[in-house]
Computed example of a mutant assay.
Amino acid sequence: MFGGGGMNPRKMKQMMKQMGIDVSEIDAEEVIIRTADEELVFSDAQVTQMDAQGQQTYQIVGEPESRALGPGDTAGASGARSEDTVDVDAAGEAGGEADGEEIPDSDVEIVATRAGASEEEAREALEAENGDLASAISRLE
């Protein structure tokens, strides 16, 4: 992550804590990433959750099994959704702006703060970049 080379893992964890980054392991039984035409199913995957300044990032380590989706299969076929479920589109980006969903206020606030712009400018940049935070920030800088 930081290219620590031969850095002591305890020292690396201490540095991350000083920077406000909290890392924890998740005891996941199965992880499913659903794209437009397939599912990637990770059984016995090692999942790490990183919380940095309110942004949560998940790292999945393991070998996925690829399953093709049939014509009747949809992203919500199971009916049940966990609070921690993240939809990932075919490009691998979390979100759903293409579905017409509104941009979350938290994203607008992040872009406005990082780019030093008004919330209105941040919202416009996010809409222009289909909800991509990094692209919206770059557009405003």
Rank of each mutant, 00 (worst) to 15 (best):
E127L: 10
T48C: 00
G6L: 10
V86Q: 05
P64Y: 07
R10C: 00
A45R: 01
G76H: 07
V86H: 02
N8S: 12
D89N: 15
R123D: 12
E124G: 06
E124N: 14
Q46G: 04
A122M: 06
M50W: 02
I33K: 03
L133A: 06
R67F: 09
D22Y: 00
G100E: 06
R10V: 14
D132V: 12
A112P: 03
V111L: 00
G96H: 02
V86K: 05
A94E: 01
V108H: 04
D22F: 10
F42Q: 05
A117C: 07
E83G: 09
D73W: 00
M12F: 11
V61T: 13
G131C: 06
G100K: 06
I103S: 04
E25G: 03
R114T: 13
Q49V: 03
S118T: 15
R67D: 10
G70I: 03
E119H: 12
E129N: 15
I21W: 03
T74S: 14
E129V: 02
E109R: 10
I26R: 08
E127P: 09
S106M: 09
Q55M: 09
I110R: 12
M16P: 03
A128G: 10
E93M: 14
A52R: 11
G20R: 05
A68K: 13
D37Q: 13
N130P: 00
T113H: 09
L40H: 02
A98D: 14
V61E: 12
I103Q: 04
G6P: 00
K13N: 08
L40V: 00
S24D: 11
E129C: 11
E93G: 02
K17A: 11
D51Q: 09
E63I: 10
G96A: 06
G116Q: 07
M19L: 15
D73K: 08
M7S: 10
D27I: 07
G100V: 03
A77F: 00
P64D: 03
Q46M: 08
T113R: 14
D89M: 07
I21P: 01
E39A: 07
E97A: 13
M19A: 12
K13Q: 15
A122E: 04
I32G: 03
D132Y: 02
A36E: 11
G79I: 04
E38T: 06
P64I: 03
Q55S: 12
T57F: 08
A45V: 02
G92Q: 03
D44A: 12
A112L: 09
K11A: 15
L126S: 04
T57Y: 07
